[in-house]
Amino acid sequence: MKKKQLIISVGREFGSGGHEIAQGLADHYGLTMYDHDLLKEIAAKKNLNGDELTAYDEVKWNRFLYRTVRGLNSSPEQNVANLQFEYLREKAKAGDSFVVVGRCSETILREYKCLVSIFVGGDISKKAERVMKYYNMTEKEAREFMKEKDKRRKQYHNRYCEIAWGDSRNYDLSINSSRLGIDGTIQTLIQYIDARIAIM
């Protein structure tokens, strides 16, 4: 029997462990995971400079600096975003299964019934602990870093999506990773995803 297509989209607050959770899900289901390395794959495929593309990854587009003429946009930020959206749509259309972190994937791939969209949040104190440990920061530095990172993610997401970043209506499931920890959250999500797979 042909294996069902499965696409898992993971949005996340900075410090919530969302990336680690996404990797855990990818490992469990044996799927490729697309995150910030996605641009390297696109660059190789299209013979572009990956480092130059990465500089504009998940960055808010400034409409006052660029303009659109005949459907073509001069904003490198928007062009890089569109490259990623197009790549993910091609993968989904081809029937590929994968996990994707961010990239507005819960919105751009919404038409696919095999999509399971998740948003991972967490308690500020727990997120700050993770950031302090990982980046060797003080609590004040960690909280400011988290605030800035989430601000950028929100601005980027809201530029391309009708429903706001983090709004529970935009996802199948929103979960607080601080309650069960990373491993517990992964196991809980696996139960949910397995239930979804059964009815796909």
Rank of each mutant, 00 (worst) to 15 (best):
M1H: 07
M1R: 09
K3R: 10
Q5V: 09
Q5M: 14
L6H: 05
L6N: 02
S9C: 12
S9Q: 10
E13D: 11
E13M: 15
F14R: 10
F14D: 10
S16K: 13
S16D: 08
G17E: 11
G17P: 02
G18I: 14
A22M: 08
L25C: 15
L25H: 12
A26D: 13
D27V: 14
H28P: 04
H28E: 14
Y29S: 05
Y29M: 04
L31P: 05
T32V: 13
T32P: 08
H36N: 12
D37Q: 12
L39Y: 00
E41C: 02
E41V: 14
I42D: 04
A44K: 07
K46L: 05
L48G: 03
N49D: 15
N49K: 00
G50M: 13
A55L: 03
N62P: 14
Y66S: 08
R67P: 00
R67A: 02
T68M: 07
V69K: 08
G71T: 09
G71W: 04
N73T: 15
P76K: 11
E77L: 05
Q78V: 06
Q78Y: 04
V80D: 00
V80H: 01
N82A: 07
N82Q: 13
N82F: 01
E86V: 05
Y87Q: 01
R89F: 03
R89S: 06
K91D: 11
A92C: 07
A92Q: 14
A92M: 02
K93I: 05
A94C: 15
G95E: 09
G95I: 00
D96Q: 15
S97K: 10
S97N: 07
V99A: 06
V99K: 04
V100G: 11
R103V: 14
R103C: 11
E106C: 06
T107N: 12
I108Y: 09
L109R: 11
R110K: 15
R110H: 15
R110C: 12
E111Q: 15
C114K: 11
L115E: 05
V116Y: 13
S117Y: 15
F119G: 04
F119S: 10
D123Q: 13
D123F: 09
A128Y: 10
A128H: 08
A128R: 04
E129F: 03
R130K: 12
M132S: 04
M132C: 07
Y134E: 10
Y134M: 06
Y135S: 02
T138D: 06
E139I: 03
E139P: 10
R143K: 08
F145A: 01
K147W: 01
D150E: 03
K151I: 08
K151P: 00
K151N: 09
R152C: 02
R153K: 14
K154H: 02
K154W: 03
Q155D: 12
Y156S: 01
Y156F: 05
R159M: 01
Y160N: 04
Y160F: 07
A164L: 09
G166V: 14
S168H: 12
N170G: 13
N170P: 01
D172P: 00
S174Q: 11
I175N: 03
I175A: 12
S177D: 03
S177C: 15
R179W: 11
R179K: 13
I182K: 04
D183V: 03
D183Q: 10
G184V: 12
Q187H: 13
L189I: 04
L189P: 00
Q191W: 02
Y192I: 06
I193R: 00
A195E: 08
I197R: 07
M200K: 01
M200L: 11
